[in-house]
Design a protein around this nucleic acid. Structure first.
Lengths: 258, 258
DNA sequence: TCTTTAATTG
DNA sequence: CAATTAAAGA
């Protein structure tokens, strides 16, 4: 059985906001290490990987591996019924077809206990080959900045060319009506505080669909920083790390620079 | 003739926000006691009853009973032209087909006086039998909490079963994808302050359409508390009381617990 | 009835 | 500014 107590429902709410538009159904793989979700997006272009470490929970118990097949739309609805700072407990029995979510208000004299039961489903787990790559370039930047850049450029064109070089990281979008080009210089510092960092073995230039990058950026609420990892002709890895785990996206580059 | 001076236009604005989606046209019955509106909602399922006591007005005069047939959409538009803290005066002559609304700014050096005239209409008054019941159970709770509960549960299903017992009050909704269940314990206290109270002669269990309860909850801006009164097989009474009157909703229970 | 658009509210 | 929700048209 699974019993996982999360001190803030907000984390789950944000995770689902980030994932639900990309994936409609997915298995939450629960085991003693924690809870993991891995799924291709609905059009099988991007891959999402979420990990919540057991140690991040207020209480966590999972005797044996348990795949919980969840409709993310339903789970989103159920999570809408939780306040951000509610204590949220997930429970499921072995071979259960029900996931139970309990919300307790944090106030000292809690008078309200809400319990929701959600139907689970059997989902054929995609066999997902998560590439385990040594990347040629790694860029860490404020997630808000990445959000802003991909949103801005998505107004102009369909795709963005990302160029990592000694110069820094450059985002280029060529649109019908206008072209955009944003350069973030390496080791840029603001107010004496390092805002980002670039590590690079060799220069990398790749082109991606902006639609997906905009979607990935919904995870900005989960972490102040985002890490972009790239090698030529290999899927981009966009990673948001937070206290109790991470959410990662993989996106294949477009062939040829259009 | 009618002349009614209200020290805050906000009250009328909020009342109309609460009612306008339920009822499109209604008679404002004015007499020496005050102003009353009673109407079935457009689909003749729920009943709304608004009362503004004469004593609650800054000045009130109504020589003889006067039914003012109002299109609530039009009145809402006219009220949008008032600031919340404007002094608002309603005037209508006997047999008038015009309602005049005057808004005066409250500032010491009032420099703005706005006057609007709205066409009235003849409305056949529904004969409304307002049930005058001794209820088996009465529950008072923060209106914001009631709002939250019915909104949450409306995400899951069409209807809610309300159970009042020694345990407290429980709201249960069974939906396609998930079930929800919220218990508020009797006489729960928070920070030493009583948040709600339950009085009960016998346990009551009734099922209602959530759509209507969500609609009723728009009155939350009028009062911090809401009172739910129930007896088996009798319409639920949802009552919001404020300084100068009240707004009450009656809703028939669904037959059989589905 | 379902989709698209407009208006409203946080 | 964005997201949700009510209204309108297909």
């Amino acid at each position: 059985m699974l019993e996982a107590k999360l001190s803030e429902a907000a984390l789950l709410k944000r995770l689902l906001d980030a994932v639900k538009e990309l994936v409609s159904d997915a298995n939450f793989e629960c085991n003693e290490e924690g809870i993991q979700l891995q799924a291709m997006d609905n059009s099988h272009v991007a891959l999402v990987s979420v990990k919540l470490y057991a140690s991040g929970f207020k209480r966590y118990r999972c005797d044996r591996p348990l795949p919980l097949g969840v409709n993310l739309g339903s789970l989103t609805k159920v999570l809408k019924c939780a306040k951000d700072d509610d204590i949220c407990t997930l429970k499921a029995g072995d071979d259960a077809d029900i996931l139970s979510l309990t919300y307790e208000a944090k106030s000292a004299y809690a008078d309200r206990i809400a319990e929701y039961e959600m139907k689970l489903m059997d989902i054929d787990a995609d066999q997902l080959g998560i590439p385990d790559t040594d990347y040629d370039a790694s860029v860490t930047m404020p997630s808000s900045e990445f959000l802003r850049i991909v949103r801005d450029l998505s107004l102009l064109g369909e795709s963005v060319r990302i160029e990592v070089s000694k110069e820094g990281i450059r985002f280029v979008s060529d649109g019908e009506a206008a072209n955009g080009n944003i350069l973030i210089k390496q080791n840029a510092e603001a107010s004496g505080k390092k805002k980002g960092s670039i590590e690079m073995n060799s220069a990398v230039t790749l082109t991606f669909s902006l639609k997906y990058l905009v979607n990935f950026s919904k995870s900005s609420s989960l972490s102040k920083k985002v890490q972009l990892m790239m090698s030529n002709d290999v899927p981009l890895l966009v990673s948001y790390a937070f206290n109790q785990g991470h959410i990662r996206y993989y996106l294949a580059p477009k062939i040829g620079d259009d």
